[in-house]
């Protein structure tokens, strides 16, 4: 050490072997990086779980360059370089339940590197629930699917309340990211009214091709004067 100091004179050491507390380690980073998407770090769920910045980021270390793969997880292009692993692998190392969901046949383009965890969530904290970037689940979804924003002449209330009533955004085995296959996803609410009152045959006109939206195609809302049944 040219300055005459030793190992113990370094004010902050990072990592699992550090004698500094997580709070002290993070404070060293936040001295410079407290704004932008880190503004709401204090009090955020990850901060409350005593996560250190270096749990996900590494500083001034050359990352081993690994070639990307078309089929394994990819991440959208980003200017940020200092993460230990690319997304979504980084997040999945703790949020393991999501790993299989991303592998489902019905999924958003996570593996293809067009959408990733931080497309919807800010892991550094937001004032919003689930660390969402937008205020609610719906505002989050509608930021890409703007055509469904409305207002519509005929609105389907559960759609307006929460997209997650019917869809699982992280991936499912049903078309259109539905939580339950058609027609049961509709039947669970519309169980005693009109045609779903009987377990219709597969070729029934009332259950056309087992897909309610084969007829009720405007299920997210209709602006047609005769669209009160979301048929057009």
């Amino acid at each position: 050490m040219e300055a005459g100091g030793g190992k113990n004179s370094i004010p902050i050491r990072f990592g699992r072997d550090s004698r500094n507390s997580i709070e002290e380690q993070n404070a060293a980073c936040l001295d410079c990086h407290s704004r932008g998407n880190r503004m709401f770090w204090k009090g955020s769920p990850h901060e409350s779980r005593a996560m250190a910045c270096v749990d996900c980021h590494q500083v001034k270390q050359e990352r081993k360059v690994a070639l990307s793969s078309d089929t394994r997880y990819n991440a959208p292009l980003s200017e940020y370089r200092g993460v230990k692993k690319p997304q979504p692998e980084l997040c999945l190392s703790c949020h393991q339940m999501r790993r299989a969901q991303l592998q489902r046949s019905s999924h958003m383009p996570y593996r293809e590197g067009k959408v990733t965890c931080t497309s919807c969530h800010n892991p550094h904290g937001t004032p919003n629930p689930k660390q969402l970037i937008q205020s609610t689940t719906n505002e989050n979804c509608l930021s890409c699917h703007t055509e469904r924003s409305g207002p519509f002449l005929w609105e389907h209330p559960p759609v307006m309340e929460n997209c997650a009533n019917c869809h699982e955004a992280h991936g499912t085995n049903n078309p259109q990211l539905l939580k339950v296959r058609m027609p049961r996803v509709c039947d669970t609410c519309h169980v005693t009214s009109r045609h779903p009152t009987s377990p219709t045959l597969l070729n029934s006109i009332r259950d056309f091709n087992r897909g309610c939206t084969n007829c009720h195609s405007a299920i997210h809302g209709s602006n047609h004067p005769s669209g009160n049944m979301f048929l057009r």
């Binding site: 505002e139 703007t146 055509e147 469904r148 924003s149 207002p151 195609s217 669209g227 057009r232």
Partner: peptide, 13 residues
């Protein structure tokens, strides 16, 4: 047959 497709909209936050 005729069906209405998504209407134009704008949102301000």
């Amino acid at each position: 047959g005729q069906v209405d497709l998504w209407p134009d909209n704008d949102a301000h936050y």
